[in-house]
Each structure stands twice: as C-alpha cells, then as structure tokens.
Amino acid sequence: MQKIFNLACGSFYALGAYVGVSAVGWYVDAGGPPALFIVPLALAGLAVGAVGVVVERGLLRFVYDRDETFQLLMTFAIVLMMEDAIRLTWGTAPRSTAGLYLVYGQVRLFGATVPVYNLIVIAASLAIALAIGWLLTRTAFGRIIRATADNREMAEALGVDMRRVYAKVFTLGTALGTLGGALVIPATAAMSEMGIELIVEAFAVVVIGGLGSMRGAFVGALVVGVLRSIAISVYPELEMLLIYLIVIAVLVARPRGLFGGATA
C-alpha cells in the first residue's frame, strides 16, 4: 500500500516469533493455565508490532521521496540490524514452546491427524484477513489509505496528514507480521535465520497474488502453501524451486500478479 517493497517484513515475523516464545515461557512460569497460552502469545505478537513505529519514524520516513532503490536498501539495512538484534537478545539456538500447542488436542480430518491449534491459527488468519478487508474497504481510514496509495499528492492536497497515515499503515503491517510470527511459532521453532528465509516466500506470495492486492496476497499464500506441500510429497528437490519458477512465470506473464489491478 505504501509502495515500499519491505525486505524487512520477514524480520518482523521472526521478531514476533521470538517474542511470542518468550511471552509464553513467562506465562507458563508464572503458572497461567496452559489452555489459555494463546492469549499472551497473541498479545505479545501485537504489542511488539510497536517496533514498526520506531522503524518508520526513525528510518523509513527519510527515504519516501527517494528512488525505490534506496527504499529497498533501507529495508535491507533493517534486515541486517534485526537479524543481529535477535541474535543479541535470544542467542543463536532455536527456541520453541515445546509441545504446548498440543494442549488443544488433535482431530481427525479427512483421514489425517491435525492438531486443533493449527485449525485455530487458520481460523485466526481468516478472521484477520476479513478484518483487514473490512478496514480497507469500509472505513474512513481505509479510504484514506487507498487514496494515498493511488495519488499521494492529491490526498495530501485534500488535507490528509501523510506522516500519520504512513506511520499507521507501516505499524499495522509490522504488527500483522509480528502477530503472524507469534501465532505460527508453537507449531515450529524460532530461528534467527527465519526472517531472511521467510521474506523470499512472502515475496513469492505477494508477487503471485499481485502487489497491493489483499485478495491476491491471500490467494498467493494458498497457492504457495499448497504447491509446497504437493512438491514435498512428490519430488522434494523441487520444493522451493517450483515456487520460484512460478514467481518468474507470473512476473513474466502478468507482472501485476494474478489479482493486481491498480498500476504499481
């Protein structure tokens, strides 16, 4: 929406994951009922999104008027800093919440055993997607965001305070990233490299779906997720290779993505 291709979104995801692990750790140590661990997890994920304000005010706002190249490099600088900041805080060993996510039990679904926690995450992501859709299309704030994305000068001339919009949008994006990282972590483990690895996948999702299209991003995520699973079970060597080849195919055939309408 801000037309900034943020290489650092993966780093925020990693940050959310680590903070989520720590929050759950404290929560369990403090004797909270394990069944409610998702509450501190989600709260921690959202709260650490506040780092978005710092990054936006402290760094990104200086490069809005610059060439896209410099914006890209600025986010690359953030990637480098965040990776070591995470190492500095949490060390290099992977962190996880052990088997805590199994407290919700498992269900059999279409012949496969699925932890209930995974279903909760799927439901939560659907709810978040709907909420973002509602925010963008139905609220005044959403209209302002879309107007800014379409024509920044015009929006400014109409009295929109660009600095506040950008700060809010970036913080919202960051909070979603950190929340996503926190939610996914009980099922895997947090590693300091996860940020730079995720970015390539996130980038694939966004490109396949189309930049600036929320619906597209959702479909892109589905495509990438499903294809990865299929490739893993059929021919593991092809797993990520397949994703990149699709990205290239989409970029070449439809640079705006499958759902991209607006000119980027």
Binding site: L59, F62, V63, R66, F70, L73, M74, F76, A77, I78, V79, L80, M81, M82, E83, D84, A85, R87, L88
Partner: peptide, 16 residues
C-alpha cells in the same frame, strides 16, 4: 560478533 548490526546501521546512515 554482531557485524550485521553495525553494518545495517551504517547502510541506513549512508542511504539517508
């Protein structure tokens, strides 16, 4: 050992 932190900050300063 945290050269990325230093270099990231340096890159940000150069860009700005």
């Amino acid at each position: 050992p945290y050269w990325r932190l230093v270099f990231g900050a340096m890159l940000a300063v150069i860009v700005i």
